[in-house]
Design a protein around this nucleic acid. Structure first.
Lengths: 347, 347
DNA sequence: AAAAAAAGTGTTTTCGAGCACATTTTTGTA
DNA sequence: TACAAAAATGTGCTCGAAAACACTTTTTTT
């Protein structure tokens, strides 16, 4: 189980460690003879430089800055903050400087301002969820030009500047919801796909989920269910959902494509609807209590906390130990009910 | 964001780094005056020794050996091997030596023999699932006496010698299965709890799951379902399950408490049973294809791969970077259906 | 053939912690 | 006051990789 060092290889090759070092980093000034001998040895031994020694020598404080929507304005982002704080705690004694920056999720201007602040602090890497499509592409370009590594999470957009994306397959999560819904609602009924629009949010999110949901039922081949789409924004929801359900009398289940599923349930509870099965997203506090009381049947967990934690871990280990960063990491699509809920909240 | 070093603290305190070092490791030979000054500084600054420098100086190859049932004899353990191999790959360039040892899951003697081999190789830590209760306690004692760190996973037993347990809350996983079953089978029917005994296996495993399953239905308060228990071993299963189902005509669902759920389904498929809902454990290949074809409704995933990977990660980071090892890590209880299956297999 | 340039090789220092060893200061006792 | 013993403090080396620097050998130019 011997681990070879540069010194070992130098001795075996009959050269100095300076020469071995030149070969490893191919910076020339090495005779063909020495080059061949050392290269051969490196391959035979499968030499791996000691990442700890390398890191010590390097001795640089890497700045990794995270740009997030303010969790006070949209509580969806709270777990992401937890993930960042977990990473800060875990790596506090290492030579990394992880910091958080907030902007207002309702303002592209605020997003741009905060990113301007961050770019001027010249970090080594930034991590952010590209919720504003155009603005994210533009800022990612500027980061890249400034030699700053860009890593994204949560929103999967085609951003060639990003080294890494951590998130979930939204199409597939729609299919997961569909399979669950199929199992818990009776046949020959209506199922509603409910989009709660937030004016600034990336609508492709919800579209991918709807596509997955619909595809699942279409692939079944038989048409036992009637799928309806319902759109509303936060303000109009109360009235329009009531109107909608007053007309649609055969609804057995509602699939809400966002984390704001609790808003829908609140309307339903006034109506004293029984036996309407609800499936939605994310373990927000309000959703969690509705899940516990069985007002929601299933929540799909997007592991927001893990997303930021993992994204940061990739960056830190890349800087400290030269580890490769995977291009994409799609996290499992967790199905949460009232009984396995706690096992996710603790993690 | 400055990171202080021993040298910095020595200069600030007006002493040499030798003195600071003596304070940090309280090995005495320091005057009260110097002690006070340095201690105060250390606290003010919240000094954290650079784990990378510490690790480099340490320069010891840590031997971490994993003792597993042979996966060729019980494929349940295959993912555990994958988890070990993933850890080996991830840490291969660090100063750790992770090795795997197999024994026959049908023989306590073989378990003891392999552990004797391992203890003679004097590793720094061992990781194993304590599937044989008495023998595990005895060997854990001997490891502890030999100064070898013991870490366990999968089987939660009261083993004070172990620094860490990684696994799942089996009682709660039974409850999860119960909640799922409740949602997919009609009321006023019979639900079967099916134990597939393997002669040597720790039966408490299955009992905890049954307890959770039964408790869930009892806590409901009303008795809409009739719970039956069915026991069989691999040999007798075919005949006895057929006999059982010939008598019990009102069965709507079967909860199989082990990963051998495919054995049950194979029997059912001969009978052309329609609409019998099956819930079982673990993503074995045979279970996976039955889940895909909807012959199984849900599988509960015990994250066996993550269990060994995590257990090893804790040990490695403890040895290399002095990180604390948590006493217990209970992994989430994953609900798997045909649609989120792939997202777990890839991870 | 001598001098200059280029190519090749080896040596030394650095990073921070940790510890053995060397040196200085203080204390206790004759 | 002398002076050894004990206590306190400081110095210097190590770990492995990396790279600057110093040195030697070969090649090219005049």
């Amino acid at each position: 189980m011997k681990k070879y060092t540069i010194k070992d290889i130098a001795e075996l090759a009959g050269v100095s460690k300076g020469t071995v070092d030149r070969v490893i980093h191919n910076r020339g000034k090495v005779s063909q003879k020495a080059l061949d001998k050392v290269t051969k040895l490196l391959e035979e031994i499968d030499y791996q430089p000691n990442p700890i020694a390398r890191s010590l020598k390097n001795n640089k404080i890497y700045k990794i800055y995270v740009v997030l929507p303010n969790p006070d304005e949209d509580s969806f982002w709270k777990p992401c903050v937890d993930g960042v704080n977990q990473a800060i705690e875990e790596f506090k004694s290492f030579l990394v400087d992880i910091k958080l920056f907030y902007y207002s999720p309702h303002s592209t201007k605020s997003f741009q301002n905060v990113n301007n602040t961050v770019i001027n602090l010249s970090p080594d890497a930034v991590l952010f969820p590209p919720i504003f499509y155009k603005e994210s592409i533009s800022i990612a370009n500027r980061y890249k030009s400034a030699g700053i590594i860009v890593s994204i999470f949560n929103n999967q957009i085609n951003l060639k500047e990003a080294v890494n994306f951590v998130g979930q397959d939204l199409y597939q999560s729609g299919r997961v919801a569909a399979r669950l819904m199929e199992m818990i609602v009776p046949k020959k009924t209506d199922i509603v796909i409910c989009h709660l629009d937030e004016p600034f949010n990336n609508a492709t999110h919800m579209q991918k989920k709807e596509k997955g949901f619909r595809d699942y039922f279409e692939n079944l081949g038989h048409f036992e269910y009637n799928l309806l789409t319902f759109n509303a924004d936060k303000e109009s929801l109360h009235k329009s959902l009531n109107d909608f359900l007053n007309i649609q009398k055969n609804v057995s289940g509602i699939f809400v494509t966002t984390s704001k599923v609790f808003n829908v349930v609140e309307v339903l509870q006034e109506r004293k609807h029984k036996n309407l099965k609800i499936i939605g997203y994310d373990l927000l506090n309000k959703n969690v209590s509705l899940l516990k009381s069985n007002a929601i049947s299933f929540l799909i967990h997007q592991r927001s906390k893990s997303q930021t934690y993992l994204g940061l871990t990739y960056l830190v280990e890349h800087f400290l130990f030269n580890k490769d960063i995977p291009n994409q990491k799609l996290l499992p699509i967790d199905i949460v009910n009232s009984e396995n809920l706690d096992s996710y909240i603790e993690n």
